[in-house]
Design a protein around this nucleic acid. Structure first.
Lengths: 212, 212
DNA sequence: ATTATCTATAGATCTATAGATAATGC
DNA sequence: ATTATCTATAGATCTATAGATAATGC
């Protein structure tokens, strides 16, 4: 007798369910930390089906990782906030970057870690970088030069500024699981901490580029 | 006939050689990425000997990890740099923290990663934190308050300042393997980049706490 | 008929242990 | 005698594939 299948809410049914389950598990424990058996268990199918749809575990992983990369790039495609002062624009960029990470707190650790372990992923990001970074820094670079000439900020490169912001924002989420555990924080307290830290980062960055 | 044993240069011979090889391998690829077979291969002994000295892989790993933790704590036990101004002291602290990481560039990723995956490690760091953080922030907190009262810096907590410095410094080394690969840097260029980035971080931090 | 799903299993790990042999310290 | 090292192997994974069965679309 046929077994009853649980209807999963994906658009392409089982294939999507597998991708979705793999996504969650890989995000938690990375490529090496997850077995296809475990993915199957989470989906509610047998392990062979994973290979029917995705052939290899590495292949399934790559699909997940590519999704994450394109999301990460989208974080840097900023709205232009026309009419705002440079300072207000910068403030909004920092905050929106922080907020996007807050909604995907496991993403930074996942990506950094796989880049270290997984040769395929570093090729993927190399392509992504070369295609996007010059374009992304270009307009910021111009703004920074104008502001500097007008004496409103010190001299700093777009790349340094972006690294500063990224460092401060991402580090918050890299250490989040530790903080939660070490200080025994509940979800509510964590959220409050986020807001406080976000403000401090904005203050730090804005102050750090004031003219000398 | 007895096989010729290669003499390894450790003080306790084989036991130390195993710890040393395990250290290097675990630092590269973490607990899950390394097998006892591989450690044995690197040491030049058979795999059973690992268990003879350390009983389990987890046990050997813990020894390695404890060493790393105590090193990390030592980074924050600062010399007092008596006689220097607060600004100069802070500058030296940032630079010495950066330099220590530069000599152990794989350490931050390793520790963050294991803390996420390995329940034992997070208990170890919890203990470490509770024993050390209050003591470490205490004296800095006092200095910051004095400087603020004297109008030489803005109001900022010792914890926030330490997180800022740690974020900026550590992020450099988390993304180092990526940078090297994506931009195809050689060792010399990497070193130069470090120096430039270190200066930028010092400037950023010192600027970021100037009075408003 | 074709596609989706399942059962079963081969082959490749990997950790830990048992038991044999060699080296070392009295 | 005791300690160090080795060989061999049990038992537990885990990935990928082969081949059987069920579901679906004409």
């Amino acid at each position: 007798m046929a077994k009853l299948k649980e209807v999963k809410g994906g658009k392409e049914g089982m294939e999507f369910s597998i991708l979705h389950a793999a996504d969650e598990l890989f995000m938690e424990r990375g490529f090496n930390g997850v077995s296809t058996t475990e993915i199957a268990l989470k989906v509610g199918c047998n392990q062979a089906l994973i290979h029917y749809y995705y052939r290899t575990k590495a292949n399934l992983f790559q699909k997940v990782f590519e999704n994450k990369l394109s999301f990460l790039i989208s974080l840097f495609e900023v709205d232009d906030y026309k009419g705002l002062s440079f300072e207000d624009k910068l403030r909004m960029r920092i905050e929106s970057h922080f907020d996007a990470l807050a909604q995907n707190p496991k993403l930074p650790m996942f990506v950094l870690n796989e880049l270290k372990n997984n040769p395929i992923t570093i090729d993927l990001i190399k392509e992504t970088f070369n295609n996007n970074v010059p374009y992304l820094t270009g307009s910021l670079e111009k703004e920074l030069q104008e502001e500097h000439k007008a004496g409103r900020i010190r001299k700093i490169s777009a790349l340094d500024l972006m690294i500063n912001i990224t460092s401060l924002n991402i580090f918050t989420f890299l250490t989040l699981p530790i903080m939660e555990y070490v200080f025994g924080l509940d979800q509510e307290t964590t959220k409050e901490m986020f807001e406080v830290r976000k403000k401090e980062i904005v203050t730090t960055v804005l102050n750090s580029i004031r003219p000398i």
